[in-house]
Amino acid sequence: MVERSPLLTIICHLLLIGGIVLVCMPLYFAFVAGSLTMQEVQQVPMPLLPGGHFLENLATAWSKVSFGRLLVNSLIVSVGITVGKVAISLLSAFAITYFRFRFRLLAFWLIFMSLMLPVEVRIVPTYESVANAALPIQWVVDGLNLSGLWEALTGYRVEISLEWNMLNTYQGLILPLIASASATFLFRQFFLTVPEELLEAARLDGASAMRFFWTILLPLSRSNIIALSIILFLYGWNQYLWPLLFTTDKDMATAVIGVKNLIPRSDTEPAWNVAMSGALLTMLPPVLVVLIMQRWFVRGLVDSSK
């Protein structure tokens, strides 16, 4: 600090406290609503102090949409997205920065095109694709009239129908969300800053490409991987539209969708208290991640925007 200015410091503290109030206010009211009975939560205006029914509401929420199962689903999906995306991104970034081959630039541009296109934009065709991912192959089969060919040759009628229906499956929830190249670019940028001498030294030791990747590049990327993983975990945990459309089986939904199903609609009872306690439960894991791993989180956020 250049000079001391107590008044300004106080103002700054006040501003920050204001910011904190702004951040916490909805959370506080969510907590208050989550701790009241259904009668209390319907009062206008709502009580401003928490009641004593938080755990009771939580138990209701837990049994109403089987939160236990949904939290496990959320965990599987967000870890799946994180691991999957980090893995394929590391590999492809390694390929496009450390190998010279004919289609390198083509591959680079193919990946680049998907950089900023969220799944929301192409939601309808993606839904169709994932409802039967094998459809393109089926077109090929039909187009070549393989069945007819077979029948002509053997006299047996064979119906070839290919299916790869991923509705209500973990892979259906995970794979389409992996399909964006942002992480690949993060690792590409990082690999470009890795000293050239490392590879040369490894080569002198006779290390193969994959050995170099495992023993040198991967350990060097450790901190990037952790930072990015946190961001991807949050991204996966908080997904909404895709699991909403994509899971029609209640047991395959995620916790966020569970909360959405708890929100009172026109012909259900106005159980805002239960919905809010469920919402708090669902936001707990990501909030803890951010609080405990604050430094990594900040770094991941900055890294993943490059």
């Binding site: 909404y240 966020v256 991640v289």
Partner: peptide
């Protein structure tokens, strides 16, 4: 101040 990033947009919207 960082907390809202961790909260699902739909939950934020509902609140």
């Amino acid at each position: 101040i960082l907390l809202p990033y961790a909260i699902a947009p739909v939950i934020a919207g509902v609140m």
